[in-house]
Design a binder for these strands. Structure first.
Lengths: 187, 187
DNA sequence: GTCTATAGCTAGATAGAC
DNA sequence: GTCTATCTAGCTATAGAC
């Protein structure tokens, strides 16, 4: 068999960059081909189901990255809850490139994308809420508070990315992460 | 002169629905024609500069609506600051149809749209922050707090719309508005 | 001012050589 | 497995009749 010109990991990285910055309809096959270094026909060889399958793969890949990095650091049993929170928020900051990169949930949740990826977006958001709820509980918050605080953290991360982009000021995102940390640790 | 088949206000309403739900690239001329009840060529008669001019008109029209309704109710000198806040948040809830409709800022701030409408998005967000800052000051908040709280309110509104959509649960948006009100009024 | 018809282009997707 | 070449459908935009 002829070897892959571009390994899966690099290809997924390119696809992810395009979908998260342009959204589903905004991402053209030419964009995706250029970002991966493959020709359109080669992309179709890897994804016979086409563009939707490419976006699905990006969602899965991103979910795994979040699981292996952000979730893992937030739930790491070897660290104190306080340290886990700091590590997790630090990884979140990296994940969004200090606020310079968009969230794939947001990018794929405009009308056409939303109908195609609703399930994965909901699952992904549920996972974030569960993880933040767990750390709230570990820090001694009552269960209802832990859940509410988790939803609130998700809201603030998503909102601050939008506002950072709109106002062209990534300190909005950075301050939000700092506020989340302070709020969790002072309770 | 032959009369307009559809008056400007109705036409803009249709254009707005499409752009805010589908984004800039996702909104096709066929979508826009259908939503307005005009044919494509008639839309081009009204907007010789094309699709971008249509989106610009939507931004201007939305800005005016926000100015005439949300900003006005938040700054209305005949009411107490407390009542103004309640009225303003109530109008915001209506503006987003209880959390069922997307924000035009978000819809137009994906890559292609962002480069085209960056200025208007920034101006619009600045206006929201200024308005909320004013009500914070009227409620006795120190200037720096009033500004931070205003940015925070914008973040939470934007974020809760994303999370409401993603988790398919508009109570997230409703709770966020309630929380903003409670937080402002208890200080 | 609105319409039908269509130009010119790019989209997503496929065929078949290598 | 990757490529060039191509298909069809949809896109934005325009021409010209009424």
């Amino acid at each position: 068999m002829r070897p892959q010109k571009v390994i899966d990991k690099e290809m997924l990285s390119g696809l992810t960059d395009v979908f998260r910055s342009k959204g589903y309809e905004g991402a053209s096959l030419n964009d995706l081909a250029q970002a991966t270094g493959l020709k359109k026909a080669s992309l179709y060889h890897r994804f016979p189901e086409g563009k939707q399958a490419m976006a699905n793969a990006v969602m899965d890949h991103t979910g795994k990255w979040v699981e292996d990095n952000i979730v893992k650091s937030l739930l790491d049993a070897d660290e104190s809850p306080q340290q886990r929170l700091k590590n997790g928020l630090s990884n979140i900051k990296m994940f969004y490139d200090e606020g310079n990169k968009d969230c794939i949930f947001r990018a794929l949740s405009m009308q056409a994308g939303l109908t195609l990826f609703a399930e994965q977006i909901k699952e992904g958001m549920d996972a974030w809420v569960s993880t933040f709820t767990a750390i709230g509980l570990a820090l001694g918050q009552p269960e209802q508070d832990a859940h509410n605080n988790a939803v609130q953290a998700l809201i603030e991360i998503q909102g601050s990315l939008i506002v950072s982009r709109g106002m062209n000021d990534i300190t909005v995102f950075e301050n939000t992460l700092k506020n989340i940390e302070v709020r969790y640790l002072k309770e």
